[in-house]
Design a binder for these strands. Sequence first.
DNA 1: CTGAAAGCGCTTACAG
DNA 2: CTGAAAGCGCTTACAG
Lengths: 333, 333
Amino acid sequence: MAAVARHAGVSSMTVSNVLNNKPSVLPATREAVLKAIAELDYRPNTAARALASASNYRIGLFHRDSDSALLSAMLVGALNASARLGVQLNIKVYDQKSPLDSVRDFLSTSPDGLLLPPPLCERVSAAGLPEEYDVPMVALAAGRELGNMHCVRIDDEQAAYETTGILLRAGHRRIGFVRIPSLAGESRFAGYARALADQGLALDEALVWNARPTFDAGLRLAEEILPGKRAITAMFAGNDDMAAAFVNVALRTNLRVPEDISVVGFDDTPIAVKIWPALTTVRQPLGEIAEVATRHLVAQLQARDKETKAAPGGTTFVDYQIIERNSVAPPSS
Amino acid sequence: MAAVARHAGVSSMTVSNVLNNKPSVLPATREAVLKAIAELDYRPNTAARALASASNYRIGLFHRDSDSALLSAMLVGALNASARLGVQLNIKVYDQKSPLDSVRDFLSTSPDGLLLPPPLCERVSAAGLPEEYDVPMVALAAGRELGNMHCVRIDDEQAAYETTGILLRAGHRRIGFVRIPSLAGESRFAGYARALADQGLALDEALVWNARPTFDAGLRLAEEILPGKRAITAMFAGNDDMAAAFVNVALRTNLRVPEDISVVGFDDTPIAVKIWPALTTVRQPLGEIAEVATRHLVAQLQARDKETKAAPGGTTFVDYQIIERNSVAPPSS
DNA sequence: CTGAAAGCGCTTACAG
DNA sequence: CTGAAAGCGCTTACAG
């Protein structure tokens, strides 16, 4: 940095000011510094920044070992943001048997904040950990607003509403729905119900099944639903894994997808394009969610340090995207 | 750290020595420090360590956006190791169209070292970048020894040999093989050929197909091979994605897996358990590979700083594991 | 709008 | 075997 300062004929403080986008720097000075940075190909030392910035925050990102499909995007997003902000990110794997204990253990090491993906965020929120510990927590993709912690997510209800709309517009009237036990599941069910209501269709409880959001559960459910006379012409599965299970069972029982039955998923995980037909599904930008969540958490930390008390709860929305592939077609008559 | 030192009645230097396992510390002193650390629940500041240690290395880990299945494990492994070693890890996404340019771009920012997963490591090695730039590079899971950079990997040849053995022991004699265009593909093919030779079986070139290791390529190949009279009773696919494609096409063409045809994959990516039947496959411990590679790279950097010249090339092996699930059965007569 | 000084929490030679 | 001093590369108040 000293070299850049010399090159630009300013002090290293000014270089720092430019780097951190301080508004006080004169445009001309800023440009000179930027030019010096480019010419010397200078890259700030993350460690030094982290150390020097009063912040020096340490935040934890929890994840289960199992769901790598969702994990890598989140990791990359959180990593990017934390590197830029100079905060120390601790990646923690939690035990499925006692997730709360894992969180408490980590909390006992006095971290500055927590990043909680589902389903952990729901558990932590319900257990009242945000009130018990004075450590800011941010939920990722929680499905709906959480009273005691901020949440960064897509609008699950609206996404499910629009996705159901695609099925309705294709001509389907008997659309099955898998309701997964989570806040996201509830929000999506609400969106599905609203879409039906908008078309003047009654919600038929017989077409709604409750199941855990795993491939295995999807397999069992599909084996129960698909054979014989089917009540549905389309299935809105709880997520991509379940949708993949439906496609799999359909193929085994000589049903064509999408000709005989349409299937849509949720999440746009890698499996969506690793089966045939590729799944029509909703993309949640997990990387962006993690990035935004990390920034929000750090902002919360800084605000707190300045005694600007922030309100708990609240939501930041991130855009989703409906990806139409090959698993939806009009119902065969 | 000062608090720990005070608590233990020593200087902070001694605390540092304990933390870094310096042999000079007396057992009694060490214990006192360790006790103080535990009582105060002290955790060293990574940023400060990184900054203070003369090292202060910055290394890059490249990856494609596409293969998230392999990515997350590698990320976590490299992250763990780099946090522990206090080195700065830059995660870089490279462009598939011009991977070498991405590497050169990054190299121009003067990093201290590179971590290269396949297939990038092969390209970089073949292009002679290790000779061109004086930056240590370590290849992850490269499939076989690379002359100009160190490689951390499983023994692909032996893994394929053993996996083919499982098929042979189940009674299969006409075993198909998908040869993917990579060093790993070559090594695995060699293992397959050796297993056949061991049983006195001739290698039948008609049962060996070349294809890129993607789900789509697997789909096309399976659609060509499976219908009609089949030459094979089992297929050793190039990886899990391809194996999944074979299972998918088999189901669509009314073939039962594994009763009518056995299928095995390679990698043990998440898709292996997200299809039915779940795949018998070879697990590559990517997390461990990344961790070992990061440590090796840093060791190389430190050795170089001390002018202890290290030999280029060389290999560190990591154990693989054959996971037997439900996609293999004896051939139907 | 810009800069001189102090300090973030460690580690590295170097004494003793 | 242990410690006092300097310094890693930045940023944060504080002057001017």
